[in-house]
Amino acid sequence: MIVVKAFVLGVLKTSTYVVYDDLSKDAFIVDPGDKSFDVVSFVTSKGLRVRAVVATHGHFDHVLGVDFLRSALGAEFYMHSDDVWVAYWSAELARRWGIEVGSIPKPDKTLCGGDVLELGSIKIGVVHTPGHSPGSTSLYVESIKTLFTGDTLFREAVGRTDLLGGSEEMLRQSIKRIFTFFPPETVVYPGHGPFTTLGHEYERNMFVRMFLGLQT
């Protein structure tokens, strides 16, 4: 049985997820928003083998904890190739805001849309969903019909597109792709805020309805 455990980390309250198979103990971590001994303690208490740390995109609030977890757990770091430069730019922006970001993590493996990650017993589909950033990705775990959308899609909102590399038109196409590929019962775990479902967003998200050409 695959389980999702959420932590809220960092100055921007990023939703960080530990996703694990309770039988095989294989696991991966999505969007580590900061260094967290609580995450390491949870992983250790469950006896999990973290196969990878995956960032849905390169903004600083989604990668601040990468090097800490990579060192503590021995896991590799994955991110889309188009967001490698975004991580450097975003870190500099954070420093201007007075946020200490430390070293910028370099991915051990870069992702592309259409990739399938097999992390032990867990299989993940990588969907390129640019708009919030050029390399934004969504991660689909088909066995539990669950999509990790980063800052592309939130509960009754979508990601901002006014940062460097953002594009409203790309976000529109990404939202269309998500609602074309995945069924309404798909559970959505976003990069910030509460979880939701695609069915709820289809009915209640004014941005989604606008992008899909529906009446609002």
Rank of each mutant, 00 (worst) to 15 (best):
A27F: 00
G114E: 08
M210C: 13
T14P: 02
A91T: 09
S174Y: 07
F37S: 08
L9N: 06
L164H: 14
K25N: 14
F68H: 12
R177W: 00
G10M: 03
G135V: 10
V50G: 00
L214G: 10
F68T: 00
S24R: 06
I122H: 04
P130H: 12
D115A: 05
A6D: 13
G65M: 03
L111K: 03
P194D: 11
V116M: 11
A91K: 12
E92D: 11
G213M: 03
T180Y: 12
G98F: 09
T216S: 13
R70Y: 01
M170W: 12
H62R: 01
V208H: 12
G166D: 15
L9H: 07
H57I: 05
V40F: 04
T14E: 05
S136W: 10
V3E: 14
A72P: 01
T129V: 14
Y88K: 13
R160N: 11
L214W: 15
Q173C: 05
G131W: 01
G213K: 02
H57S: 08
P184Q: 02
G165A: 12
D38A: 14
E185M: 03
E169R: 13
L214P: 11
L198Y: 01
L214H: 14
T137P: 01
S174N: 08
F7L: 08
P183T: 05
V63I: 15
S41A: 15
H57K: 05
P183R: 07
L23W: 02
K176Q: 13
F211W: 10
G150W: 03
L147R: 03
R209I: 04
M206T: 12
G65P: 01
A55D: 03
R96K: 14
F195W: 08
R172F: 10
V4E: 09
V8C: 05
F207K: 14
E201I: 07
R204I: 02
L198I: 00
S45G: 09
R172G: 02
D22P: 10
V187R: 12
G74I: 02
D31N: 13
L153C: 03
V3W: 08
S36A: 09
D108W: 00
G58E: 09
G131N: 09
Q215Y: 14
G33V: 06
Y202F: 14
W97E: 15
L147V: 04
S36D: 06
V63K: 03
L73W: 01
P184F: 00
H200Q: 14
R96Q: 13
S15V: 09
V30L: 08
V86Y: 04
T44Q: 11
